[in-house]
């Protein structure tokens, strides 16, 4: 019946409005729920969440060794040409030529932090760091060489 529906509608509307009002009042009275980070002030205690991806880095151990074989899987996987690997041939102790990286060039300004290179890497040589203060005065600073000078590939990584 029309009139019953009408009254039902009015009361239903009031009820749903009350539900909304209750939610906002809960937040209004519970200031501990506030999730805003006071960024430059809390820089020392800032906690980044686990899944935040800031920049591709190549970890080196204390003997200045990395795990990158120069297979260019990451370069192929990258959707917008962020990674460029320059390889060289090294002669090892047995006199055999072996492919190794000369420079792992990473263009931070092109990177979209899509994580495809990290999943593509067969030897876990690169990973995502959580740094985020990337602003510099010259764009050329954003082109980085990830392997440290005179670094070598780790023993046993093929």
């Amino acid at each position: 019946m029309f009139i019953v529906n009408y009254i039902k509608e009015v009361f239903g509307a009031l009820k749903s409005l009350a539900v909304g009002l209750r939610r906002t009042m809960f937040y209004f009275t519970h200031h501990k729920e506030i999730i805003t980070e006071q960024y430059p002030d809390n820089r020392a205690t800032l906690k980044m969440s686990d899944r935040f991806k800031g920049e591709v880095v190549m970890p080196h151990d204390e003997k200045n060794e990395h795990r990158c074989t120069g297979c260019t899987a990451c370069e192929v996987a990258c959707p917008n040409g962020t990674i460029k690997i320059i390889t060289k041939f090294e002669v090892n102790a047995e006199g055999k030529k072996k492919k190794a990286i000369d420079k792992f060039v990473y263009h931070l300004e092109l990177c979209t932090m899509c994580n495809l290179c990290i999943t593509a890497c067969p030897s876990d040589a690169i990973k995502m760091a959580q740094t985020f203060e990337h602003s510099v005065f010259d764009r050329s600073h954003l082109t980085k060489v990830l392997n440290k000078p005179d670094s070598k590939i780790m023993e046993g990584v093929e």
């Binding site: 906002t24 009042m25 937040y27 209004f28 200031h31 729920e33 506030i34 999730i35 805003t36 006071q38």
Partner: peptide
Amino acid sequence: KVSAWMQIRLGPN
């Protein structure tokens, strides 16, 4: 301030 607190923000500070 009211809008900030209702939206779990801090508001002007």
